[in-house]
Simulated scan of single mutants.
Amino acid sequence: MPPRIQRHEKIIALVREHSFMPIEQLARELDVTPQTIRRDINQLCEENLLRRYHGGATLGDSLENEDFNAQKAKLQSEKAHIADLIAEHIPDNASLFLSIGSTIEAVAMALVKKRKGLCIITNNIHVAAIVSGRSDYTVIITSGVVRPIDGGVTGVATVDFINQFKTDYAVLSASGVDADGSLLDFDYKEVSVMQAMMENARMRYLGVDHSKFGRNALVRMGSIGEFDAVFTDREPDEAMCKRLEEAGVKCLIADNGK
């Protein structure tokens, strides 16, 4: 295999592992010049395998879609138990925002089974499809541009739409939770939508499985301390538990039956 092809495979593997890789770090890892890495990234971007950001790269649409489908298939049981626990903390006849992601889709399925009379505002066409079968629900889907990878609706119009409402709850997820408590995602447009949901809800719930703790992503959504409760399937490490306690955030652990 030509050295360039081998290098491309290693670059993709490193970006996939770390979610975002700076050019300088890739150059050190592969023992080549930053100029070589820039040329490699440009070619991989042309093939839609990577997406370039200032100073580095993330996965491109083709690999991101592949990874999203793989991620969605992982930890299904854990996400279902997290979703059940969240549904127990949403009363009947409540109004709520539901964002994007496989955990939030699981929340939608749990709500349909457990709760009546809900008003749900979502930027997730999959969530809208799940909850729209309930005749006692009011389901509102935001305006905006649909992302083909996950059915998320994003954009300036989405934020403007959300700002018209004030709900009882916002139920959100995140792509990663940094050690300092920062909530991270890959798409700044989606982050803007989730921030609007946070600002326009009286109670904020975060649902994240254990794999999200310590996972990197490029865009900061906010802090875990801005939520009223965090729902997960394993207790976070001691430092994170202390951070949550100091911020007055409840950490609720779903019983996964193990």
Results as ranks from 00 to 15, higher is better:
104 I>S: 01
189 K>R: 14
2 P>T: 13
97 F>A: 01
9 E>D: 14
93 N>H: 14
80 A>N: 12
70 A>C: 10
175 S>M: 04
141 I>Y: 08
109 M>F: 07
99 S>A: 09
221 M>Q: 13
33 T>Y: 08
121 I>H: 06
254 A>T: 07
212 K>D: 06
184 L>A: 04
239 A>Y: 11
126 H>E: 14
237 D>C: 06
256 N>R: 07
69 N>C: 09
131 V>N: 00
169 Y>A: 03
227 F>K: 02
213 F>S: 09
194 M>S: 11
176 G>Q: 02
114 K>V: 00
97 F>Q: 01
1 M>C: 06
144 G>Y: 09
215 R>H: 12
236 P>W: 04
17 E>S: 12
226 E>W: 06
249 V>F: 03
47 E>K: 14
104 I>D: 00
236 P>M: 08
104 I>E: 01
252 L>D: 05
169 Y>R: 02
204 R>K: 15
166 K>H: 13
249 V>D: 04
1 M>R: 10
93 N>T: 15
195 Q>F: 14
142 T>D: 00
181 G>Q: 05
179 A>M: 11
255 D>S: 14
212 K>M: 03
5 I>N: 11
106 A>G: 01
102 S>W: 00
44 L>M: 01
250 K>G: 07
235 E>K: 13
238 E>N: 11
166 K>R: 13
79 K>Y: 07
217 A>K: 04
246 E>F: 11
152 G>P: 04
215 R>K: 15
94 A>Y: 02
174 A>M: 03
110 A>P: 05
115 R>W: 09
125 I>P: 00
15 V>S: 15
106 A>T: 00
39 R>P: 06
22 P>H: 08
187 D>H: 07
129 A>P: 05
150 D>S: 15
106 A>Q: 04
219 V>I: 15
76 Q>D: 07
85 L>N: 07
31 D>E: 13
246 E>D: 15
24 E>D: 10
99 S>F: 05
99 S>V: 10
95 S>T: 12
187 D>V: 07
209 D>Y: 06
35 Q>S: 14
60 G>P: 01
66 E>Y: 13
92 D>S: 12
144 G>W: 05
243 R>W: 06
47 E>N: 12
144 G>Q: 10
202 R>V: 08
76 Q>R: 12
102 S>K: 07
81 H>Q: 00
175 S>K: 01
96 L>Q: 07
229 A>W: 08
57 A>T: 01
109 M>Y: 06
82 I>C: 09
60 G>D: 04
154 T>V: 15
237 D>R: 03
66 E>R: 09
140 I>F: 05
94 A>V: 13
107 V>L: 02
101 G>S: 08
245 E>N: 15
171 V>T: 08
36 T>N: 12
82 I>R: 02
159 V>Y: 01
198 M>F: 11
32 V>W: 07
11 I>G: 07
196 A>D: 06
2 P>Q: 12
11 I>C: 12
177 V>K: 04
31 D>G: 04
103 T>S: 11
156 V>N: 10
246 E>N: 15
26 L>E: 07
128 A>R: 05
